[in-house]
Amino acid sequence: MAAATGCAAGAVPAGYTALAVKFAERQHSHHCLLVKEHQVREGADTAHPPRRTLFVLNVPPYCGPDSLSRLFSRCGHVQSVDICDKPGPGEKKDKLASKFFDHKTLKGFQVAYVVFRKPAAVQAAKALSQEGPLLISTESHPVKTGISKWIASYEASIVDPKELKAEVDAYMEDYDKKVAEEKAKAATEEGVPDEEGWVKVTRKGRKPGLPRTEAANLRVLEKEKQKRARKELLNFYAWQHRETKREHIAQLRKKFEEDKQRIALMRAQRKFRPY
């Protein structure tokens, strides 16, 4: 285990401890998990309470929450494992999270927060660096990779229509209720002045206002412009004639100048050799 000690005892950034980890007994080389006690600068990170949480860096792609939890369970009882893309405060678990619609696929190397029940376990986890590499997949708890994993995920991708339908129906019911509530609220506010006496003009009612969108604003501007253009007289005064002629020559000159420039560029690239 010379390599293992090399990883563990070698260079480690301040505050971190390196844990060697490999997939199974078969492999020769290992990755280094960098772990440290999770610290929060300000505010309370409720999902990852300080002192009890171990911050793990460089978690290999085949190492899921279950494996991590198993790896660290020998240091103490693991309360939860949270794997995410990059370090950040733990999000509140959304109660609406659905099996079908909010897929979060983990990609590549991750960071993880392992929350223990007791702070002592964090120190115990750090001490693991003295031992040989940890194994992610063991005979008792094999981790599926490759073909077997893909077949499993293919199987998982088959949706049960009834379940899906039930979920959609439930969501839509909620949504409809919400929309109805908003509508009712808007209806009650319709035409009622607020405390300063302002009345909100909506698109409904007898005198609908303009919609407040960018497109509508642009449309109005365009219309104004057209109106102005219609009023203008072209080719009426002699100076207008002169102007257009001058403008025409200027256009030609500009084009000529552009062409000359392009030629110069082409010449620089030696584009005129027909052989």
Binding site: F23, Q27, S29, H31, P60, T145, G146
Partner: peptide, 17 residues
């Protein structure tokens, strides 16, 4: 960590590689 990555190639493609 090239050595480990090369082995990861094999692990990720178990059965295919």
């Amino acid at each position: 960590n090239v050595e480990a990555i090369l082995e990861d190639f094999e692990i990720l493609g178990e059965g295919l590689v």
